[in-house]
């Protein structure tokens, strides 16, 4: 299960958080933990360089893209490798929507589109679409090109 996708700005404020199968009372704990993890480790990291951590049996892969940091959390079959696949899809889609690595303003400008992309990529904790061109078409309700 892909437990969470969280996107924060450089100050650690949450821009998007989507939890799946995480009880409401644990969400704040996760949010704080991830933001701290980012603050401790993401300084000076290049765009899209993936960092990894584990907390008990849960894996976390995170990275930075422009002004935003992206965290994905998973367990069981969503181990560090599956998560790096998921985060790769997310970063590619973000760059595609924003045209470049986003500034915070650009990210907020494109907020609606980004939500739609995330909805196509992760659905209730399962990875659904992985190809950026397909995602780009799906958010505009266009069928995929290969069809």
């Amino acid at each position: 299960m892909l437990l969470a996708v969280l996107i924060a700005n450089s100050e650690g404020n949450i821009l998007v958080e989507r939890f799946n199968g995480v009880p409401a009372e644990e969400r704040l704990h996760w949010r704080t933990f991830l933001v701290k993890l980012g603050a401790d480790n993401l300084k000076g990291v290049k765009n899209e360089e993936l960092l990894v951590a584990n907390h008990k049996s849960v894996y976390i892969v995170y990275t930075v893209l422009g002004d935003v940091s992206i965290f994905v959390v998973g367990k069981d079959e969503y181990d560090e490798l599956a998560l790096s696949e998921a985060i790769f899809v997310i970063t590619t889609a973000l760059k595609d929507v924003c045209g470049k690595a986003p500034t915070e303003r650009l990210f907020l400008d494109k907020y609606g589109k980004i939500c739609l992309c995330l909805d196509e990529i992760v659905w209730k904790g399962l990875l659904e679409n992985t190809d950026k061109d397909r995602i780009k078409r799906l958010v505009r309700l266009k069928p995929p090109t290969e069809f």
Partner: peptide, 15 residues
Amino acid sequence: CSQVITKLLYLLNQG
């Protein structure tokens, strides 16, 4: 309408 939905989504995504 799309803008308003985006705002609602933003609120929901902020918890």
